[in-house]
Amino acid sequence: MATATGTQIAVHRTANGPVSKKIRQGAGPLTFLVTAQKGDWLKVHLPTRPNGATGWIPVEDVTLSTTPYRLVVSMDEHRLDLIEKGVRVRHYPIGVGKSTTPTPPGEYYLAELIRPPNPEGGYGPYAFGLSAHSDALTSYAGGPGQLGLHGTNRPDLIGRDVSHGCIRIANDVITELARTVPLGSPIVIQA
């Protein structure tokens, strides 16, 4: 995992190549999932469209760390697995996107952690912003259609295809995950 030392970072098309975009910090530290290193450059997943986008950032602009955690979503089983050091240590029931606004499968990461103002509201006490974006919506609730892993005020809907693409989970579970799993941790969404 790489966390920017500043509030924005220049992303390059290739290691030491031209700048393709600048990404600014959102609700928390600007964090990336590292997929490769080439000298003083890191290839990272980007929290932008299109899903799965990658780019290169200089090592000198980030602090590196590791995580023992990985999350795996099984949409057809409505289950989220918490993997620690390669071993499934917990599994939880979830709600996922409905047919008109499906949750896109792929390899993503936890990009930010938000504490909604109303912990009893629709997003629960915590919401992880994922690096994933909806393929069906270009915007949602004033944002860019970014997907989340969040709590819910409707636990009766967990176990179904009910959301606009986000992953819904019980409030006690999202609280546990927010206290345990760091930003930059991978989340794999399987169909």
Rank of each mutant, 00 (worst) to 15 (best):
Tyr140Leu: 13
Pro125Lys: 10
Arg168Ser: 06
Gly165Val: 01
Arg70Trp: 08
Ala141Asn: 11
Gly145Thr: 00
Asp172Pro: 04
Tyr126Thr: 05
Pro105Asn: 10
Gly142Met: 03
Thr152Trp: 00
Leu82Met: 07
Val173Ile: 11
Gly145Cys: 01
Leu80Ser: 02
Val59Asp: 11
Pro102His: 05
Ile174Pro: 09
Ser163Leu: 02
Pro105Glu: 08
Asp172Arg: 10
Ile167Met: 02
Asp81Thr: 12
Gly86Thr: 03
Asn153Ala: 12
Val87Gly: 10
Glu60Met: 11
Asp135Gln: 11
Ile114Asp: 11
Cys166Glu: 10
Thr138Glu: 02
Thr152Asn: 01
Val72Glu: 12
Ile169Tyr: 02
Phe128Gly: 04
Glu107His: 12
Pro105Trp: 12
Asp135Arg: 12
Gly124Leu: 01
Asp61Asn: 13
Ile158Phe: 08
Ala132His: 01
Val87Pro: 07
Gly86Ile: 05
Val162Ile: 02
His78Cys: 13
Pro144Lys: 11
Cys166Pro: 08
Gly95Lys: 09
Glu60Thr: 15
Ser134Pro: 01
Ile169Gly: 00
Leu82Tyr: 03
Thr101Gln: 01
Leu113Val: 09
Leu64Lys: 15
Gln146Trp: 13
Leu137Val: 00
Pro58Glu: 04
Ser163Asn: 00
Pro58Trp: 02
Ala132Arg: 05
Tyr126Ile: 11
Ala141Pro: 02
Leu113Lys: 13
Asp135Trp: 11
Ala170Asn: 14
Gly184Phe: 03
Gln146Lys: 15
His133Trp: 00
Tyr69Met: 06
Ser163Asp: 00
Met75Val: 13
Thr175Lys: 13
Glu112Val: 08
His78Gly: 00
Val62Ile: 03
Ile57Gly: 12
Gln146Leu: 06
Gly86Cys: 07
Arg168Ala: 01
Val73Thr: 14
Tyr126Lys: 11
Arg168Asp: 09
His78Asp: 01
Tyr123Ala: 15
Val87Asn: 08
Leu110Asp: 02
Val59Arg: 09
Pro68Tyr: 02
Arg115Val: 15
Gly129Ile: 06
Gly165Pro: 05
Ile94Glu: 04
Val87Gln: 13
Asp172Gln: 05
Thr63Gly: 11
Pro119Asn: 14
Val87Arg: 14
Ile57His: 07
Val162Trp: 04
Gly142Trp: 02
Thr66Pro: 03
Thr67Tyr: 00
Gly151Ser: 03
Thr67Ala: 05
Val62Asn: 10
Asn118Lys: 12
His150Pro: 08
Glu84Ile: 03
Pro125Phe: 09
Ser139Pro: 00
Leu147His: 06
Val181Ser: 04
Leu80Val: 04
Arg70Ile: 03
Leu157Trp: 07
Arg160Pro: 10
Thr103Cys: 06
Thr101Tyr: 00
Lys98Asp: 03
Val72Ala: 15
Arg179Trp: 03
Leu157Glu: 04
Ser65Leu: 01
Gly142Ser: 07
Gly95Thr: 13
Tyr123Glu: 15
Arg115Cys: 08
Val62Phe: 08
Gly145Ala: 02
His78Met: 03
Leu137His: 01
Ser65Asn: 07
Pro58Met: 08
Ala136Cys: 08
Gly184Lys: 14
Asn171Ser: 04
Glu176Asn: 10
Asn171His: 04
Val59Cys: 12
Ile83Thr: 11
Val162Gly: 06
Thr63Met: 15
Leu71Met: 02
Leu71Asp: 00
Glu60Asp: 10
Ser131Gly: 04
Leu157Ile: 09
Pro105Ile: 09
Glu77His: 13
Arg168Leu: 06
Met75His: 13
Thr66Tyr: 11
Glu77Asp: 14
Gly86Pro: 01
